[in-house]
Design a protein around this nucleic acid. Structure first.
Lengths: 223, 223
DNA sequence: CGAACCGTTATTGTATACAAATCGCTCCCG
DNA sequence: CGGGAGCGATTTGTATACAATAACGGTTCG
């Protein structure tokens, strides 16, 4: 991560997530170059990636703007993620070795540790959670699937910065993981898929309620 | 498409598809710049896109190679495409307007015309087919879904260059489209999903048989 | 005879200067 | 008073030169 384009990517991303930039605000490559502390060349490369991750968008005339995500956008991403990650869980159930299952157990133990502390360590929880899902996706052994999911998972994680997690949510996640591990140990693809499905769907609702409370039917379908 | 980076993308892509480059052959940015007739800067941008589309791959040390697709790779892509495009069909069934359904009918009429000629016009068929699927995906109204599918659909289309289609395959496709239109007209998401599923799965087998005839279990999982 | 080291060459990565395009403003004309 | 053409300023796109890094080959030492 020492290369200038990677550094640019990291810094710009951090900048966007910090909330310092308003949604739909225009950004110029020069500004970003200044923020990242490198020249425009690597910035352009970083911007490409961020566009791909939909954190930045381009106008029809190639000008850059901070993406603004509607509630529909978020729901869409969760839906796609669910579809793909259920598939990943199913495949993983067919392929996971004992050692890999053990690894999942270890990671989930760390995750539980992070929860059950005087004050839950959310950063640690998120990191363990990320690891867990990454292990499952890797085990699915489907490079494109992994690539697509990386994009979908990244983005919402980003938005979670501001979010506050309830203890119940965290504990339920840990239990979901336990059941997922059971499904893997039993080599039952259908079970794994089902558990992953409810796990992610619950996550979506819990997420949606804290971010865009109601949303109703008012703005959604009309446009 | 007059921008240098677009031109580079087109030319390099055409070059790769022409078969002039062997799979796993190394390519340098300079070579590609020469082929595209522009400097390395836009070439690098084009290469990024082609990497994303998996026509090019990078070694761990950033060297560039022509991708070589295993049969497993192809199966994986068809599977993902099926999953996503079934979802698109389902969504489209809920949202398509009468006018859009009419448009699909028009396109499929063109597609049939292309088949039923003294000698079937495959290029015309493929173009109409592409249009048809694109209309469905657009109607699903899910930008990320569209983006992902674009990548998955592009690549195999590429490999089809050498392929020869049987008249039966072409006609079956046309019938599938008709049934899909019927499902849309009836606003039946489940029906649409099911038809799309069998449509694509058949396409996969028909494709796989002409490309990598047997594949069996010999080379696949071991590596 | 083999293997590790070092210098050369090839290749990718970055900075900068310049070209093309777009934007926003003013000014002119209807 | 409104709309559009033109112009200066801003922004993106491309070429080129140079820096950093990785591959290659030869040589030397064990």
């Amino acid at each position: 991560m020492s290369r200038a384009s990677d550094q640019a990517y990291q810094k710009i991303r951090a900048y966007l997530l910090s909330g310092a930039a308003q949604p739909s605000e225009q950004l110029t490559e020069d500004q970003l170059a200044q923020i990242a502390g490198v020249s425009r060349t690597p910035v352009r490369e970083a911007v490409r990636r961020l566009e791909d991750e939909l954190l930045l968008v381009r106008s029809d005339t190639k000008r850059l703007f901070v993406a603004d995500w509607s509630r529909d956008d978020i729901e869409e991403m969760f839906t796609l993620r669910q579809m793909l990650e259920c598939h990943a869980a199913e495949r993983a159930a067919r392929r996971l070795s004992r050692a890999q299952v053990a690894q999942l157990e270890t990671v989930n133990r760390i995750l539980k540790d992070a929860i059950e502390r005087p004050v839950p360590d959310v950063a640690r929880f998120l990191e363990a959670n990320r690891s867990f899902h990454e292990l499952v996706i890797d085990a699915a052994h489907s490079p494109r699937l992994g690539q697509m999911l990386a994009k979908l998972v990244e983005a919402p994680v980003v938005l979670r910065t501001a979010r506050n997690y309830s203890l119940d949510d965290l504990r339920q996640s840990a239990r979901d993981h336990d059941e997922l591990i059971a499904a893997f140990a039993a080599r039952d693809p259908e079970w794994a898929r089902a558990v992953m499905g409810s796990h992610l769907r619950r996550a979506f609702h819990s997420f949606a309620n804290t971010v865009g409370p109601a949303a109703g039917e008012s703005t959604s379908e009309a446009a």
